[in-house]
Design a protein around this nucleic acid. Structure first.
Lengths: 202, 202
DNA sequence: ACTTATAATCTAATCACATTAGCCATTATA
DNA sequence: TATAATGGCTAATGTGATTAGATTATAAGT
């Protein structure tokens, strides 16, 4: 019997499941059961089996986050825009632990796809940084700094790694403020270098 | 026949294997083969099987890193000490991809142990920060900031996530300098608060 | 409507580990 | 030298992923 399933529907169900029980517990067996089909049937949607499902989850996660980030940055500029982006990132990680795991986890073995996946988030960052007077080289450093911090901080927070009772919110704000100050100190830096115009990866 | 193995030896072999092929490819089957024994024999060393092995790898990783960090900080103070610690962290991640994965990965499901494991690194950080005029609260924020950044940056770098040809070394330096500047701006901050004296977790 | 092609499921079988149970030889020790 | 602890093994079990091939249901064309 047809069940009216499609790839995206399945990915969303899997994502919810990952958020609830952790990505490691999203097995084809359990997923199939939740969907009311048998494990082998999943291969009609994911030729590559479990591995492909994980990759799709990773991609879906980045696309979702990218969407939220883009929305959050609209109508804001400079520091406000950056703070908004960072806040969205952190909240996304906290609200989608499983998906966020997938976004980092898949990347643990494979790689290429992940580079593409994060591209859009990076672009938004770059656009926001255009409002500052910075060289393209400086922009790359800055995006890398924020990206590294966001990923590490969110990952540690997500897994309860910050044991101290002191507010994690305050720490997050503190760090962002510190990094933003660093950007302000650069104002008046060198001019744009054409060589970087094309390559907005980070 | 006795093979003269012991837990630590096995952990080291497993760690090397992880660095070479990735933690996901360290199976009891392959590990046993490399050690010249059969998989079931490994249970004599690791009651908890594969899960315990992974936990031990995680702990071994943090202990090793902690050792290197402690050594690196000796004879240095303030910014020099922090730079040394960060550099060691990053190099460790780059030089022990597999072990570094284990350090973060195991923590993906479990948790308590990991909190303990990172304790020492955190302590060293705190000691170094004692040389600055900072409140304990500020110190916690700062350690969290560095910890988050180091983990995220190293993780992304390790997995080839920084596609731009621009020097990753420069980006790393840039970020550290930025964060250190942030600390300098705080000099002359509030006095120490006794409430934090006991809890040095982060 | 009727036949054919396509798509979505299923069952049965296979594989790759991890893990458990229980046997045996070797080492250490009382 | 008995005897217990140690470290290794073989055989068997269990779980989940994956493959092969059959089956049914939808869709398309006549």
């Amino acid at each position: 019997m047809k069940t009216g399933l499609d790839k995206m529907t399945i990915i969303k169900v899997a994502a919810d499941m990952a958020d609830e029980k952790g990505i490691a517990n999203v097995t084809l067996k359990v997923l199939a059961a939740k969907l009311g089909i048998k494990p082998p049937s999943l291969y009609k949607y994911f030729n590559g089996g479990l591995d492909e499902l994980n990759k799709e989850l990773m991609l879906y996660g980045w696309r979702s986050l990218e969407g939220e980030i883009t929305k959050a940055a609209i109508g804001k500029a400079k520091d406000d825009a950056i703070l908004a982006i960072c806040s969205v990132y952190r909240n996304f990680a906290a609200g989608h632990k499983g998906l966020f795991e997938a976004m980092q986890w898949y990347n643990m073995y494979q790689s290429k796809e992940n580079l593409q996946a994060t591209q859009c988030m990076v672009s938004v960052f770059f656009q926001v940084l255009d409002a500052y007077d910075l060289s393209d080289e400086q922009k790359v450093h800055i995006v890398r700094m924020f990206r590294g911090f966001l990923q590490g901080f969110s990952s540690i927070e997500s897994h309860g790694g910050y044991g101290n009772p002191l507010s994690v919110n305050d720490s997050f704000d503190f760090a962002l403020r510190t990094m933003l100050n660093g950007i302000h100190d650069l104002q008046g830096g060198r001019k744009s270098e054409a060589a970087f115009e094309k390559n907005q990866s980070v």
